[in-house]
Design a protein around this nucleic acid. Structure first.
Lengths: 207, 207
DNA sequence: TGTAAATTTGCAATGCGTGCAAATATGATT
DNA sequence: AATCATATTTGCACGCATTGCAAATTTACA
């Protein structure tokens, strides 16, 4: 396929990447609020104005790979396997979207520090939740499409909301309680299991 | 009880109320982004600086009753009835926190327009989601406390996250599909039911 | 080489949010 | 009523994100 990327495109990608890496590095080093867009662009040697032609806001640079992740998850749902159960499909989707993805290159494996930033800085947390919410809406719609006759729009939304809501809140609580990454993983699985079996199953051993 | 509110306090409450009502009115009339804090304060006849001694940000004025709502919900959980089921308690909590509450007076029954603003304006949506998320964390903690020996922190978070996540996403989808308020209500109930019975119950009639 | 199209840049503005110290208003005391 | 301590409001100066616009620069291509 004609992947003949001209100098123009290559340069753009390079600049974009430099902005992302520099921004994330500075955010970690001196904090999000303490870092100005001017400082980021100065380090990359482009004008401040240019930053905003790559990202719509200072927050957005932190979520540079958000869209890719969502698309990966959507693809899993769209390519649903024939006899696959709703639950199996959703679990597979979660696993995939967590496998990083990151466009291909971008060595930005700052997943740990990044997560911390997003959970800590109010502006980033809010933006992240908004992106997550929007993603959930798209996932619910895709789910409805995938099981067209069997699952209505509302059921699909309830399913996605329940699963993601449980996993997200539980893992957050887990992290705040100082769990190790492994424990957080277990917590997430446990939360999804609860969402799958239903709240009614909590008080009672089985239900 | 000594409810002897001096002039000072009365005046503060009056100003606060005026700011809220004026802000919401202007937001509806000309849009959130199009309304400046300066315009709000000019209409109330106080200085711009004063606005920020009442609210930490322009967004916050829209969520003036958020804390009261959350506290009402927390109270329901704290006052859990002895033999009450987890599910019953949660459903009761949701009903209560939706019954408005609004401090007592504040005739600001703009619930409809307000909801629209919050769902439409990106900044407000993000802030709202952040507040909701924080509220969920507190609710989960309260739930854990209420059922100390029976429900762990993680289970509590999974329960709250699942229920709220399902209800929130489903009702949002419902609204976007143009459902009437009554239908949205039904949608919310249906979503909670799914969360309660578990995702596993979706494909199959019973499970 | 020259020209059209894409990008970057500089600049001026707007508006949110904050620190600080001066000005006001309120409540309590004598 | 005069006065002092305390709570609020206000004005002002900044810092910073974000945007519109037009000029300058760069890349692609004939």
């Amino acid at each position: 396929m004609g992947d003949v990327v001209g100098l123009r495109v290559r340069k753009k990608l390079r600049t974009r990447r430099a902005l992302i890496e520099t921004a994330l590095r500075l955010f970690e080093e001196k904090g999000y609020e303490e870092t100005t867009v001017a400082e980021i662009t100065a380090a990359v040697d482009v004008s401040t104005r240019t930053f905003f032609s790559y990202f719509t806001s200072k927050e957005d640079v932190v979520f540079f790979d958000g869209e890719a992740r969502v698309e990966a998850a959507l693809k899993v749902i769209a390519d649903r396997r024939p006899a696959e159960t709703l639950v199996d499909l959703l679990l597979r989707m979660v696993r995939h979207s967590l496998d990083a993805v990151t466009d291909a290159d971008l060595t930005v494996e700052l997943t740990p520090a990044r997560r911390h930033l997003i959970m800590t800085v109010p502006a980033l947390r809010a933006r992240g939740l908004d992106l997550l919410f929007e993603a959930e809406q798209r996932l619910a719609d895709a789910l409805h499409q995938a099981y067209a006759d069997e699952i209505g729009p509302v059921e699909a939304a309830a399913a996605i909301g329940s699963l993601m809501g449980a996993a997200h809140l539980a893992t957050t609580v887990g992290m705040e309680r100082g769990e190790t990454p492994e424990q957080v993983w277990a917590t997430g699985r446990r939360a999804m299991e609860i969402a799958i079996r239903g709240l009614g199953s909590i008080g009672h051993p089985s239900a």
